[in-house]
């Protein structure tokens, strides 16, 4: 599967500088990391907290830029793109799910899911509504379309967030601890959902988690230790 990489990192170095009084402390998160992820892969990035796995995900999503090295998405070097182009690229090719749902509290579940389609005028309101309704129904939320986020349970909120990430049919779904804030029952629903997505639609998924059980559901595990690729295991 690695023959057709959709994400490729080449000698990526990322430092974070923390201002402490007058001093500037430079903290190297990722000294030098290279790997690639193929189309249709379901990959988990694991590692202890502070190992740099979240930073890695933000770099892949173009939310953050490396200090040196290159990040490619779909053959394009996103680490060299302008902020404007990155916004366009994220909207067109990526979907994000975070540990917290981060839904807009003033909008209903349906409106939240429509938002990425409307953001760039990718679809008219009618089409966006249709697509969002279908997706939410697929995720078992057909009776919660018009609920505001605070009228939903934690699991439901996270499923709405996943629908929002999927609504523009992204090339890659990037998830940062998507079950970190859920009880085991709801977490299980999300695991199943991700596996199903990958199997049924061939959705490329990159998942950051420290949950070994969840990682075990995936097809490949990249274990990160102190910013270095510690192991790269293919499952099944």
């Amino acid at each position: 599967m690695n023959t057709d990489p959709v994400i490729k990192l080449e000698h990526v170095r990322k430092e974070l500088s923390i201002r402490n009084g007058g001093e500037e402390l430079v903290n190297t998160i990722l000294p030098d990391i290279s790997f690639s992820i193929g189309r249709g892969e379901f990959t988990a990035i694991t590692g202890p907290s502070g190992s740099g796995k979240t930073t890695l995900l933000y770099l892949m999503g173009g939310l953050d830029k490396p200090n040196s090295g290159s990040v490619y998405l779909d053959g394009e070097e996103i680490s060299a793109m302008s902020e404007e182009d990155l916004a366009e690229m994220r909207n067109a090719k990526l979907g994000f799910v975070y540990q917290f749902h981060f839904l807009l509290p003033e909008f209903t579940a349906l409106e939240n899911v429509m938002m990425p389609l409307l953001a760039r005028g990718r679809a008219g309101v009618g089409d966006a509504r249709k697509r969002a309704t279908e997706l939410l129904s697929d995720l078992g939320l057909s009776d919660k379309l018009h609920n505001k986020p605070n009228q939903l349970s934690g699991g439901q909120q996270q499923r709405v967030a996943i629908a929002r990430a999927l609504v523009n049919r992204p090339m890659v779904l990037l998830a940062d601890e998507p079950t970190g804030n859920l009880d085991s029952k709801n977490a299980e629903v999300i695991y199943t959902l991700f596996s199903r997505l990958n199997e049924e639609t061939g959705q490329t998924i990159v998942l950051v988690t420290h949950d070994d059980h969840f990682a075990g559901e995936t097809r490949r595990i990249l274990h990160i230790l102190d910013g270095r690729l510690d192991s790269d295991r293919k499952l099944r």
């Binding site: 999503g61 939310l63 902020e83 404007e84 916004a87 366009e88 994220r90 909207n91 067109a92 994000f96 981060f102 807009l104 938002m115 990425p116 953001a119 760039r120 929002r164």
Partner: peptide, 10 residues
Amino acid sequence: AILKSIGFRK
């Protein structure tokens, strides 16, 4: 932040 991450520009 979330609007930016889903593709809203400055």
